[in-house]
Simulated scan of single mutants.
Amino acid sequence: MTQISIVVAFSRNHVIGRDGDMPWKLSTDLKRFKALTMGKPLVLGRKTFESFGGRPLPGRPHIVVSRGAPIAVAGVETAASLEAALARAERLAQDLGVDDICVIGGGEIYRQALPLADVLHVTHVEADIADGDTFFPPISDDLFEKQEEHFVPAGERDSYDTRYAIYRRKKPR
């Protein structure tokens, strides 16, 4: 079975977005994101896809969850539900020979995917964001165990220090 991984960055108060964008610049974290997701199917919501400027991230097939019209862009498929997107991503992962699907946002997709996830790759942004409008749900200690964490000081092109953590599901789904 293909592993479902959530890849997310959120602030101390669980903010992930503001006005259709991330409320920070984290060049260091974007490099980690690229390394984690390259070559793997990405599952994301329509608003998150639109935040990329309507273009897919290179080297990764995209399955966009949207109840609207299909997105007619090369490298992008549309699914009407998270379940349909995950099923399609599983087939793509098998075709690509990878064992991981990456769920990359936004808030509603994360909320639906959290109970299904096997692994959480979390960048904890060391800031409180007062004017955020999109949030990541709380991570249940009953479901997930933090297995790894390390501090990442803000680099030259980063707004904040971060802590990168990996959480694994305690019991198989």
Rank of each mutant, 00 (worst) to 15 (best):
E83K: 15
G45E: 05
I63G: 05
V43N: 00
E77H: 14
P41R: 05
G59M: 00
S81N: 11
E83W: 07
R55D: 06
L57H: 07
V65Q: 03
P56S: 13
A72S: 15
L44N: 05
A85I: 01
V43Q: 00
P58A: 05
E83G: 09
V64Y: 02
T78M: 01
G54M: 14
E50S: 13
R46H: 14
P61E: 01
G54Q: 10
I71W: 00
E77N: 15
A80G: 12
S81T: 15
R55L: 13
L82Y: 13
A69H: 09
L42F: 03
A74S: 15
L82W: 09
K40H: 15
V73L: 01
T78Y: 00
L42H: 01
L44C: 15
E83V: 13
V76Q: 09
T48A: 10
T48H: 11
L86F: 11
V64M: 02
V64R: 01
L42M: 11
S81E: 06
S81G: 13
V73S: 02
G75K: 04
P58L: 11
G53T: 12
L44D: 00
A72M: 13
E77F: 07
T78W: 00
L42Y: 05
A84I: 07
V43G: 00
I63D: 09
T78R: 00
K40T: 09
S66A: 15
E77G: 13
K40Y: 13
P61I: 05
T48N: 09
L42P: 02
A85E: 02
P56N: 13
P56Y: 11
V73H: 01
L82S: 10
G59E: 01
P58R: 04
G54V: 11
A84D: 15
P61Y: 09
G68C: 03
L44W: 03
H62L: 09
G59V: 05
V64C: 05
K47V: 14
P61F: 03
E50V: 02
E77D: 15
G45I: 09
F49W: 11
S51T: 13
V73A: 03
P58T: 06
L57S: 10
G68T: 04
A84V: 11
K47P: 04
S66L: 13
A80M: 10
R46M: 03
P70T: 09
P58E: 10
L44G: 10
A84M: 08
R67K: 14
V73C: 03
A80N: 12
R67C: 06
G75Q: 07
G68P: 03
G75F: 02
T78V: 04
A79Y: 08
F49M: 08
A84C: 09
K47M: 14
R60M: 06
F52W: 14
A80F: 08
F49I: 04
